[in-house]
Amino acid sequence: MQFHSLLTMGIFENLWGILLADASSHAFGPALGLSVHDLGVMRGARSVLAGLSFDVTAGEALIVAGPNGAGKSTLLRSLAGLLPLCAGHITLSGVGAPDEDGDIDHARYVHYLGHKDGLKSALTAAENLNFWAAMMARDSSLGLFANKALTSTEALARMGLAHALDVPVAYLSAGQTRRVALARLLVAHRPIWLLDEPTTALDTASQLRVRDIMCAHLGEGGIVIAATHTELGLSSARELNLRPLTSGASS
């Protein structure tokens, strides 16, 4: 799929989102929307992403596809605010109050789960999740999703790991560790999920659990942007195809 067709599609869906906003009052407010315009990212001296534009609105999933080295992880990291942009801008609407520049810091509203799990192998699954729940807790004065977060026990149960609560992460298998990492999405709620290969090492049953929590998140009006090579089983997902840039040239 070409970028420009995606862009127009995005605009139409954005309009739909605004039109539908009054009818369906989502948990995250009326018109949550992430809009990326003319994004460019450099890694070292190499341009990895250039001229990338798309819109995602509440309740929508965007699957980022493309061959290895196409910039999928780079896109997710830049959306998470971990990489500086060299061109373009990312705007977020429908949450929080803009700061003095009129911008909303989008990085505050994303949950980034990369290739690495962000878990300490010496701590138990519950200790890890309790830490992240405390660390990523949000002041309820923001008025958003303050009451959405699950406890560590509930989150692990959702991922089918209730028995692993007091097991050090070092003793868990690769798939179980990944599931603990995914449970982090549930203990601290953010409206936008950025998932890099979320189903790595997961068995079929766990992949279905991941689909379930993503569907639940979308149903509450959240946004999921996932980079993956496998089918996530989301019926309404749009796809964004990235191609590797030839070095030095911008597309």
Partner: peptide, 14 residues
């Protein structure tokens, strides 16, 4: 940094 905790720490409000 190795286990990805740093990325998540940077996403916190601290």
């Amino acid at each position: 940094c190795d286990d990805g905790s740093l990325d998540a720490l940077r996403a916190s409000d601290l």
